[in-house]
Design a protein around this nucleic acid. Sequence first.
DNA 1: CGGGATCCGCTTCGATACTG
DNA 2: CAGTATCGAAGCGGATCCCG
Lengths: 129, 129
Amino acid sequence: MATHGNPEPDDEACRQVLQILALIGDKWTIQVVGRLGDRTLRFSELHRAITGISQRMLTLTLRQLERDGLVTRTVHPSVPPRVDYTLTALGTTLLDAAVALGEWATTHRHEITDNRRRYDTTHPPRTQS
Amino acid sequence: MATHGNPEPDDEACRQVLQILALIGDKWTIQVVGRLGDRTLRFSELHRAITGISQRMLTLTLRQLERDGLVTRTVHPSVPPRVDYTLTALGTTLLDAAVALGEWATTHRHEITDNRRRYDTTHPPRTQS
DNA sequence: CGGGATCCGCTTCGATACTG
DNA sequence: CAGTATCGAAGCGGATCCCG
């Protein structure tokens, strides 16, 4: 393991992993991947399927996923233009891992919500007193 | 689980799950939880263990984890003051799930890195020339 | 030693307008 | 339909000072 502040190769791997984990926490990435889990969708279908996302964010999210090789972007030279997005094999493995985490969240969400309520009522706002 | 885009009361659960997933993607949360995985640590130990984190961010991260019931905060009335942080049972289950995702990231990080390089060299910068 | 309060730059994101 | 370009608002995070 990295012992001192030396930029060892280990350290870089850590940053890479952290960077990939950030994908999961991204507000939209998981929702897009989840929608593409069972079938191919076109841009407008994704846009309608995901409540509250803007075209800008959908574009940026898809671009990043394409860059990472998690989704495939297929442009059909037709009028009007049509672009299909599909999950790659790599993307599917990510979805599997994310689903596991989603199940954890689903299982414990009430517990966590209760903990928050209890904390908020127990601990007075610490600004002065 | 919601299979298709119906705005059901299910929607709130979805937001809760998303909110919890955001914990994972948080820059510091996973690192803190990971450090507390095997043993109890005090504030200064965590601060030294996690490279680059500020006291502010460490405090905020720990506060949130305490609020969610993932870590326990123990204040020892001594001079100088000493505060210990420990993972709760719930926190341990999160760590397990996160580790699985971390292994996914570790396994595929080279693949993803390569995909990015390939994408960056293949796709020219789209800002018109 | 373990934080709280404040200032402040930087990134992120939503809304809007425009293009092929 | 599927984007791109730009602008402005909001939030995150770092640096600093101070207190129990």
